[in-house]
Amino acid sequence: MKQMNEADQQLARQAIGLLDLTSLSGDDDAERIIALCQRAQTPFGPVAAVCVFPRFVALARRTLDSLGGQAIRVATVVNFPHGGANVASVVAETLEAIDAGANEVDLVYPYRSLLMGDAQTGLSMVAACRDTCAGRARLKVILETGELRDPQMIRQASQDAIAAGADFLKTSTGKVLVNATEQAVRIMLEAIAERGGLVGLKAAGGIRTFDDARTYIELARSRFGTAWINADHMRLGASGLLDELLAQLECPVGGEA
């Protein structure tokens, strides 16, 4: 593995601080979640958040706190992964997750409803979850852009989610064939720009390499500038990316590992 130059080292450190370190596998157990939380504190600084299923929120919070990681957020997912249309059920799920200690809620937007011509369900669901999260948790809305596919659909979902009160727009669940793409992120960034850059962006799904991280950070930087690139505005959702970033940063200077 070739040694990174100084600029790449700085970018890799920045990417760690933007990372939502994620474990959303069907066979997740307590041991895996504890190990995830232990990895969240790195020699190069903490990740932004750990993202786990709702049933592991309380465990993740306790584990992080016991390790001195009080500043690391606990994120969870609701209406996941299929993006159903039952607003009341999703609100109940959101409230339960916040009561368990979630700092951030990643809500799957009811994208199938939009594809069938129903925009109101998405507006209502995001607004209801926004009210539930108000003052207690950050709301990140997963648009599932790979399923929406059409640029105009991605634009409408982005605009509607922002209008209904999303704090972040997120590309994907990582559970479908097409996840984060440069095209989708460009459309989402434009919708965010239309509202003054006040809403954040989370690129997630298929982000595994340093070059993937660089691509999405640079897209956001080119749109909003360097100062915008922080954990309040930009996230990278991934499970395997941290290992690559650490391997790159820990490579001995002037040689190969």
Results as ranks from 00 to 15, higher is better:
1 M>K: 11
2 K>E: 12
4 M>C: 06
5 N>V: 01
7 A>S: 13
9 Q>L: 03
11 L>E: 13
11 L>A: 14
11 L>I: 08
13 R>Q: 13
15 A>K: 00
17 G>I: 05
17 G>Y: 02
18 L>D: 06
19 L>E: 06
21 L>D: 04
23 S>P: 03
24 L>D: 09
26 G>A: 14
26 G>Y: 05
28 D>I: 02
32 R>Q: 13
34 I>K: 10
34 I>D: 05
35 A>L: 09
42 T>E: 03
44 F>Q: 00
44 F>G: 00
53 F>Y: 15
54 P>C: 04
55 R>A: 09
56 F>K: 00
56 F>D: 11
59 L>F: 07
60 A>T: 01
60 A>E: 02
65 D>P: 01
70 Q>D: 13
70 Q>F: 05
73 R>G: 06
79 N>E: 08
81 P>T: 07
81 P>L: 10
85 A>T: 12
88 A>V: 07
92 A>M: 11
97 A>L: 05
98 I>P: 08
99 D>L: 10
100 A>N: 09
100 A>E: 10
109 Y>S: 11
109 Y>I: 09
116 M>N: 15
117 G>N: 01
118 D>K: 01
123 L>G: 12
125 M>Q: 15
127 A>P: 08
131 D>N: 13
134 A>H: 10
137 A>D: 03
138 R>M: 12
141 V>E: 06
142 I>P: 07
149 R>S: 12
151 P>K: 03
156 Q>I: 10
160 D>R: 08
162 I>V: 12
162 I>G: 06
162 I>P: 05
164 A>W: 07
165 G>M: 08
168 F>M: 02
170 K>L: 08
171 T>L: 09
171 T>E: 11
174 G>D: 08
176 V>T: 15
177 L>T: 14
181 T>C: 09
183 Q>E: 15
184 A>P: 13
186 R>D: 14
186 R>T: 15
187 I>V: 15
187 I>G: 14
192 I>R: 09
195 R>Q: 15
198 L>I: 11
202 K>E: 09
210 F>I: 01
211 D>R: 10
219 L>E: 08
220 A>E: 08
223 R>K: 15
229 I>M: 04
229 I>R: 00
229 I>T: 01
230 N>K: 00
230 N>S: 11
237 G>D: 10
238 A>V: 10
241 L>P: 03
243 D>F: 03
245 L>Y: 02
246 L>E: 03
246 L>D: 02
247 A>E: 10
248 Q>W: 01
